Amino acid sequence: MTQKKYQITIIGAEKYPNYNRIMLSNILQNKMTVEETIMNPLDWYKENGIDLHNHNPAVRMDCSLQNIELADGSVVSYDRCILATGSKPFILPVEGAELEGVVAFRTIDDTKKILDYARKYQKATVIGGGLLGLEAAKGLVDQGMDVTVVHLEKWLMETQLNEAAGKLLKTDLEKQGLKFRMETKTEKNFRCESGNGHRFFRWHANGYGFSCDVNWNST
């Protein structure tokens, strides 16, 4: 689509312009700043005649009238509408999933929240030993946290690696400071009675439990 042929309107829930989500783990690893993940700054939209409604999600769509109502009550009309909503992070549906300190890793705001936790607390658990979970865990170690990765399968990154390669990866990451609980299923989260409001115990199907300050879902 070109500016000459179309009048373009973009609607989004986040307060940031488009950015590279793949690079969010680099922020945790102190390799990039938030600003460096931004692909097109706000001025770019104005320069290209694009009407950007960020931090103002769509709440209702009327296909017969061809318009979209936004969260602030404004209405945007359209001739053609492209739905490109992406996805939401999956939080394990277990008891205690709603507790403060249980966070996902999907957005810039998620990343900022995790960095804030890393400045305040010491122990973190990452659920999921796939690529995203391991990048997240390494970033938290780089922030000075004591990190345990809880993984359901027998070896890490089982979708991409065979067993031998997965175990070699685990050995290398252990040398970098990560801890692992393999073949372990999360059952529930709950607060520790003597905790500080964020610390809670996490119990698993094999009966093993331990405490942490932050629980990061990367499933």
Rank of each mutant, 00 (worst) to 15 (best):
K123Q: 01
M23S: 12
H53C: 04
S211K: 13
K112E: 09
M145E: 03
P57S: 00
G139F: 09
E100M: 13
F210W: 14
L156Q: 07
I108T: 00
M32N: 07
N206K: 07
R181K: 05
P93D: 07
Q122R: 13
K170Q: 09
V75D: 06
K5N: 15
A58W: 04
T125I: 14
P41Q: 06
L140I: 01
A118K: 00
G101L: 03
G133S: 08
K167W: 09
N20K: 06
S194I: 13
R80Q: 14
V94G: 06
N162W: 00
L99H: 15
R202W: 12
S74F: 09
Y121F: 12
E95L: 15
I127M: 09
P93M: 08
R202I: 15
E153A: 07
S25C: 07
L115K: 00
Q160R: 14
E187M: 09
R202K: 11
Q176A: 11
V75K: 08
P57C: 04
N196P: 01
V150D: 06
G209N: 13
E135M: 01
T107Y: 05
N67Q: 15
S25A: 11
N189D: 13
Q160S: 14
E153T: 02
E14C: 02
S194M: 13
I38V: 10
S87M: 07
K46Q: 11
Y208D: 14
V126D: 10
Q29V: 00
D79L: 09
K4C: 14
I114L: 05
D51C: 12
Y19F: 02
E183N: 11
E158S: 15
R199H: 11
V150I: 01
E14R: 09
R181T: 03
C212W: 11
K15N: 05
F90Y: 14
E14A: 00
T85V: 13
E163G: 10
F90M: 10
D43C: 15
L65D: 13
A104S: 15
K113T: 04
E163T: 07
P89Y: 09
F201Q: 14
R119I: 01
N48Q: 10
S218P: 08
Q66E: 07
S87H: 08
G49C: 13
R181P: 01
H55S: 09
R80H: 14
K179A: 04
I10W: 05
K123H: 04
V214T: 03
N206W: 06
R199V: 13
F180W: 03
E135S: 02
S64P: 04
G195M: 05
I50L: 11
G129L: 11
L65P: 04
E193K: 10
S64C: 02
I108M: 04
I68Q: 11
E98I: 10
A205L: 06
K175T: 02
R21F: 00
Q3P: 13
T111C: 08
D72N: 10
V126M: 10
M182G: 01
V150S: 01
T107R: 07
L156G: 01
I68V: 15
V34F: 01
M145C: 01
I50A: 05
M23R: 11
V126Y: 06
N48D: 15
N40T: 14
I11C: 06
A13Q: 14
W203M: 15
D213C: 00
L83D: 05
Y121S: 11
S25M: 05
A71N: 12
Y121C: 08
A164Y: 12
A118H: 00
G207Y: 03
I68L: 12
S218H: 06
D213E: 05
D62H: 00
E100S: 13
P57N: 01
N26Q: 10
E14I: 04
R199P: 05
